[in-house]
Amino acid sequence: MSAGWIYNFPFEININLKAIDDAVRAFSVKYEAFFKVITKSLGGLVNSINFVLNKIPWFVLILLVFIVIWRTSNKISKGIIFSSLLFLVGVAGLWNLMNETLSIIIASVVISLLFGFPIGILISTSNRLNKAVRPILDTMQTMPVFVYLIPALLFFGLGKPPAVIATTIYAIVPIIRLTNHGIRQINAEVVEASLAFGSTKLQSLIKVQIPQALPTIMTGVNQTLMMAMAMVVTTSMIGATGLGMEVLIGVNRIEIGRGLVSGSAVVIMAVILDRATQGLVQRSEVKTDGQ
């Protein structure tokens, strides 16, 4: 008697992968007009951000980074270090590519916050909704990123718009989670107090709950930004130009120097954005501490 069934599955279902492909394709064809509108507006958004960034003189941006880092860290030395790093990016000839990448990041983060913040507030108000949304958020975060790229490519074509979509799906999760968490962890008596004095739900939310949750929400903004940065190279695979594309080219052609230099530029961007928004977190903490 063969005991093969113990170690191997006795039967398998043939998943019709072709049917899935076809269905998605058919969907994309059917709603082509809809996707086109989105593609166009996303493209327009990214391009206009890029346009504005390119209009900012390089030294102004470097000065801005210096001031922001200096003010948030209270250390001149840090301001000098980070602005010099940014200077290096320019010297390496990557300034415009950086602006391109930055415009995708900004667009994705703005969209993430625009949707994520209200969603976070909404699910903080209902345990049932929270339970329903949690597995979706888990999936969005754990699904291999490449899987988004395929439908994004199908629906929105090559280039920056699908990159923004894929980045948003990935980066929207922390702002939702941390807004939700921030509001839920407020001392119950503080919320009770706001209601006991006759606040409407909206008053309680705006005057008490959001301000009290601000440090956590700001951490969410920071995390969303970092997640978006993490997608820079991945999205270059669907044609998002910028620093990520440089890294990708470096990898494909085994040009170590090119990969290393543009990779370092990504790191510098990430660190600067992180420190600047960390500063925001600390500021809001100080404010809720009331100091």
């Binding site: 008596e189 009290q212 601000l214 404010k287």
Partner: peptide, 27 residues
């Protein structure tokens, strides 16, 4: 109803809490 309840809470009854229930973002 909601409105009457808010009026009641705003004008007739108020509460003091064990852990104070103060809002740390306000002075």
């Amino acid at each position: 109803n909601k409105k009457e309840l808010n009026e009641f809470r705003r004008n007739k009854i108020s509460m003091v809490f064990q852990q104070f229930g103060l809002m740390s973002h306000r002075n």
